[in-house]
Design a protein around this nucleic acid. Structure first.
Lengths: 327, 327
DNA sequence: CTGAAAGCGCTTACAG
DNA sequence: CTGAAAGCGCTTACAG
C-alpha cells in the first residue's frame, strides 16, 4: 500500500498537521522536526495524494489548454506544438501540469471545459485560438474563472498575449516597398480571422504611408480545410496582374502560391508568417516567436491565478515582438 | 457558492447516496427518483467535484501523455500533433481528459510523471516515444501502473501500438525495385532509434529478396537537432556514387537531400515516411497513419486500465498498417 | 513550535 | 429501492 501522511507522521513521531507544514516548508517548524519528517517521507517513498490536496485546498497546480475544433489546419500548423512547448517549459519550472481539452465538436468541447472548471481540475485556462462569441470563453467569463487568450479577444476586458499583427503586416509590406517594389499583392487566410484582418490593415497602412494606391484586385483571402489548395487555386487569377512581390499571412498560403509559380516556371519574392523557419523557398518570413508567446502566456496566467485568489481583477495585454528573418 | 451533492439531495428530497446512484445511472433507482434528482441537478447547475470523486473512487478519467525531452525534432515533426489528435478524438468519446507531461530535462520529467502516478492524477500513461531503459518507463513498470508505448519497446512484456517498420522499409524499397531501379540508397535518421534500424532491416530484406547486393556506401544515418541540415551535408558524399533512387525514413531527412539536389540541379526519385502528406516534391511516401495509431493507442490503454482493475496482466501488441502513397 | 479536531465533497459497503 | 454511517487523504483554523 502507498504511504499516507499518517504513516509518515507515525514514523516521524509527529502529527499529520506537522507533516503538512513540513511539506509546505513552513517557517514555524523547527529544523530538527523538518529533518525528521523528511527522512520519514523519503524512507516511505511518500508522495501526497493530489486529489485529496486539491479537494481541501482548492488549487490543483494544473492549467487547462483549450484547443479549437479538431481540424487539419490547426494541428498541421507548427504554431500549436511550438506554443505548447513554450507553455510547457515554464509550467514545468513552476511545477504545474497541463491538461488539454478534448472533443470533436462544440458540444464535446464544452463538456470537457465544464469538467475542468466545475470539476475543479484546473486553476486556469489558456485558449489557443480566438473566435468571436466563443461559448467556452463565455463560460470562463461567467464563472470568473482565470483565463487568457493566446491571440485576439473581442472584449477589451479579456487578458491576452499576442503579436502586434497590424505592425507586423506593416513591416512585412515595407520590407518589399523598401526594396523598390510597388506592385505588392496580399494573400491572407480566412477573412473572418482577426489575425488576417490585422495583417491586412498593416499592409494597407504601409502602402498608404508610401503613397502607393491600394489595388483590391491584388488582395485575396482564402479559406478551407487545406489552405495550400485554396491559395494555389487563386494564384492564376492573381498573377494575371502585374505583381512584383507577395505578402502572405501564413506559410501554408505561401505554399500554394509557390507551387503554382513553380509550375508556370516563374519566381517572385514572397514573405510569409510562421512559428518556425519555413521549409519553403521564399524570400523572408515574419517570425511570430510562438515559443515566447507560450512562455509569456503561462507566466501571465499564473499571475492571473494569483490575482484571482486575492480577488483582484486585472486585465493583462502583452505584446510579443516579431522579427523579420531573411531566408 | 457551487452546489454540492448535499444541496442536490436536499432539493430532491433524497439522500446524497441516492444522488450518487442517479449519477451512476444505477438500475437500483426508480425512474421517478431519477427524474426528480436530475431535475434538481439541472436546477442547481450541479457538477460533481472530480477531486472528491477521484479521492474516494481512485479513478480519474484522465490519461497522461509522456513526451520526450524538449527538442525541435519532436515538436516539429507532424507525428506528435497528429497522434495527439487521434488520441484526443477517442478520449473525448470516452469522456476522458488528457494531461501531458512537462519538463525540460529528465529530472523534471520524472518529477512530473511521479506526480501523475503517485499523486493519482491519471489512470494510465501513453509514451509518445521509446528509448532503451527509460527511467520513466521503469517507474510505470515498478508500480504496475497501466501504460503503453506508441512505438517500439525493449521488453517483450510491454504493451505497444506501432507500425510494422521492417515491413514498411521492405515495401518502400520494393517500390523502387519494382520500377526497375537497382542502385537504391538508404538514408535514415538517428541510428540509435529502433525505428531507423527496423526500416533499415526492411531495406536489406528487399535487396536480398531481389538478389541485389547491399552496398554500405549507399547507406547513411544522420542525427542532430536539425535533421535537414545533417542530411543536406551527407548528400554530397552520397551522390558521388551512382544512385537511381533514395529511400529515406523521414520527411525531414528527405528535405535536406532535396535541397542539395535542387542546388546541383539534379532530380532523383525519393520516398519518405510521414504522418501527413509531405509538402515536398518527392515521388511517394509511406503514410504511417498517426491518427489511427493515436486512436488505437487510447483504446488499448483503456483496455489495459480495465484489465488492471481486475488484476489481469495482459500484454497488447497492436500493429497499425501503413500505406504507400504516390505524390 | 506543535497537536487535536473538523471538514473538503464525494462513494461504498451495510442494512433494511 | 433507499438511507445512515464511515471514510478516502489531505489542510486549515484554533488552541496552547
Amino acid at each position: 500500500m502507498r504511504a499516507t501522511i499518517k504513516d509518515v507522521a507515525k514514523l516521524a513521531g509527529v502529527s499529520p498537521s506537522t507533516v503538512t507544514r513540513v511539506i509546505q516548508n513552513s517557517s514555524a517548524i523547527s529544523q530538527k522536526t523538518k529533518d525528521l519528517v523528511r527522512k520519514a517521507m523519503a524512507d516511505l517513498n511518500y508522495h501526497p495524494n493530489l486529489n485529496a490536496r486539491s479537494l481541501v485546498s482548492s488549487y490543483t497546480q494544473v492549467i487547462g489548454l483549450v484547443l479549437p475544433e479538431d481540424s487539419d489546419v490547426f494541428y498541421q500548423n507548427p504554431f500549436f506544438p511550438t506554443a505548447l512547448r513554450g507553455i510547457s517549459q515554464v509550467a514545468a519550472d513552476h511545477n504545474y501540469a497541463i491538461q488539454i481539452s478534448t472533443g470533436k465538436n462544440e458540444e464535446q468541447r464544452l463538456e470537457a471545459i465544464s469538467q475542468m472548471v466545475y470539476g475543479k481540475r484546473v486553476d486556469g485556462l489558456i485558449f489557443l485560438y480566438s473566435k468571436p462569441d466563443d461559448p467556452l470563453v463565455q463560460l470562463a467569463i461567467q464563472h470568473k474563472f482565470p483565463f487568457l487568450i493566446l491571440g485576439k479577444a473581442d472584449s477589451p476586458f479579456i487578458s491576452l498575449v499576442d503579436n502586434d499583427n497590424i505592425q507586423a503586416g506593416f513591416e512585412a509590406t515595407n520590407y518589399f516597398i523598401n526594396k523598390g517594389y510597388k506592385n505588392i499583392a496580399f494573400v491572407a487566410g480566412n477573412k473572418e480571422l482577426v489575425v488576417s484582418q490585422d495583417r491586412y490593415s498593416g499592409y494597407k497602412n504601409a502602402l498608404k504611408s508610401h503613397n502607393i494606391p491600394l489595388d483590391e484586385n491584388k488582395v485575396k483571402f482564402v479559406s478551407g480545410f487545406l489552405l495550400e489548395d485554396s491559395s494555389y487555386k487563386i494564384s492564376k487569377k492573381l498573377l494575371k496582374q502585374e505583381i512584383d512581390a507577395i505578402v502572405t499571412t501564413d506559410t501554408m498560403v505561401a505554399e500554394g502560391i509557390v507551387k503554382y509559380l513553380n509550375e508556370v516556371g516563374t519566381k517572385l519574392p514572397i514573405i510569409s508568417f510562421d512559428s518556425v523557419k519555413p521549409k519553403l523557398d521564399i524570400e523572408a518570413y515574419v517570425d511570430v516567436h510562438a515559443i515566447k508567446l507560450g512562455r509569456v502566456a503561462f507566466n501571465t496566467l499564473h499571475q492571473i491565478i494569483s490575482d484571482n485568489k486575492e480577488d483582484k481583477q486585472v486585465c493583462y495585454r502583452r505584446v510579443i515582438p516579431h522579427t523579420i528573418t531573411e531566408l
